[in-house]
Design a protein around this nucleic acid. Structure first.
Lengths: 97, 97
DNA sequence: TAGATATTTAGATAAATATCTAATATAAGC
DNA sequence: GCTTATATTAGATATTTATCTAAATATCTA
């Protein structure tokens, strides 16, 4: 099954895209992330889990907090998919997906 | 509402991504597209409609056939979203979405 | 205009998704 | 060890989505 399916699915939700953009600025705890949304913590936790499964973010516990940060490697693969479609291409051919 | 939401949603489905990649190679009729999938024509028609609403494809009737082709302008905006996240950036800032 | 071909629209349904509340886990501090 | 703070897991529910069959629309041709 397509490697890129999970990241594409993960990025199809506006809340998750916003989380990505927040993490671009700085690493954040789950709680700090949740505070930025009009949504319960379990809901945000669910979104973070989907981002994590798609390998778009990494989590790391520090004491009571769990810090989330971006994992840009998968983004590169998604960008390559777009390059392939628009013919502008990255470094390597990518017939994936 | 985020301008990029529809294209992101549209691209979250593997069938639709495959259609995009087929259209990258050449313009195709709805029927020819449907033939490449193990799925009914109405289902493909539905997928084509979602791609059209997201402005990722354009359709044009020619006689009995309706030809679909890529509309790369919106792809560029999506790519810019990724550039913004990965800090590699396109030509303009894009705080959209 | 009747029949054939290409495609979409309508309506139904099963599966996936986003969200909530309540309960559980994990760590820190007294 | 108990209490508080942070975060996740479990379970329920409403909405969205992908898919199908059947019906409708549009175009061509004889």
């Amino acid at each position: 099954m397509p490697l890129l399916n999970m990241p594409f699915k993960a990025l199809s939700d506006p809340t998750r895209r916003k989380i990505i953009q927040m993490l671009k600025e700085k690493d954040m705890t789950a709680g700090d992330i949740a505070d930025q949304f009009d949504m319960t913590k379990p809901s945000i936790s669910h979104h973070l889990n989907i981002l994590k499964q798609a390998q778009l973010v990494i989590d790391q516990r520090k004491g009571q907090n769990i810090y989330y940060s971006l994992n840009t490697t998968v983004f590169q693969e998604v960008i390559n998919w777009f390059f392939n479609v628009t013919d502008r291409r990255g470094e390597f051919e990518n017939e994936e997906d």
